[in-house]
């Protein structure tokens, strides 16, 4: 059960120190460490990354949401196609979804040209892929549950009863 609590806190802020997590959960520090090790060993936690507001940086970062339609046959299933696509480092996320298209793919690159080329040269030619629709991200308002932009100041009085 402690793993669940630790996981919740890591999802909130993966940079919480083990000491702080221990304080917040009333666990011992080594219990927290063991829980994190277990979460990593079992692959439940498979990485830690920063949540970035790209608008705050000078350098361009191009991101696109790509809808993919595929046609399956007896030899080829969703998993086969997903493996081919997921191995490209440009693909940041790949999900099989319900609805009008099959895969929802997030692609990232340094320029529109780079991303377009990747999709036209690496993705579209995959024989099972019948259609791609590329949506370039224009502005992001919220990422991983965190609202982007300038946070609001704490306007509360410093003392109140």
């Amino acid at each position: 059960m402690s793993e669940r609590e630790v996981l919740e806190l890591l999802r909130e802020n993966a940079r919480y120190s083990t000491a702080d997590i221990a304080r917040m959960t009333d666990l011992e520090e080594d219990e927290v460490e063991a829980a994190i090790e277990e979460l990593e060993a079992t692959g439940v936690v498979c990485g830690y990354q920063a949540v970035v507001d790209w608008d705050k940086l000078e350098d361009e970062r191009v991101r696109a949401e790509v809808e993919l339609n595929v046609r399956l046959d007896r030899e080829t299933g969703y998993d086969d196609i997903s493996q081919r696509l997921a191995r490209f480092p440009q693909v940041k996320a790949l999900r099989l979804v319900s609805g009008d298209y099959d895969f929802d793919m997030e692609v990232e690159g340094d320029s529109i040209r780079e991303v377009s080329q990747f999709i036209s040269e690496k993705v579209a030619p995959v024989p099972e892929i019948t259609q791609t629709v590329t949506h370039y991200v224009m502005t992001s308002y919220k990422e991983n549950g965190i609202e982007l932009g300038d946070g609001e100041d704490d306007e509360r009085l410093s003392f109140s009863p």
Binding site: R156, L157, S158, F159, S160, P161
Partner: peptide
């Protein structure tokens, strides 16, 4: 008069105050 009043004035003198004196949710 309220006992907290004068603390307000001290708090005004610094701009790096962290308040644990607030009786309302953040």
């Amino acid at each position: 008069p309220s006992g907290i009043r004068r603390f307000f004035e001290i708090a005004e003198e610094r701009d790096d105050v962290i308040s644990l004196g607030v009786g309302e949710p953040d």
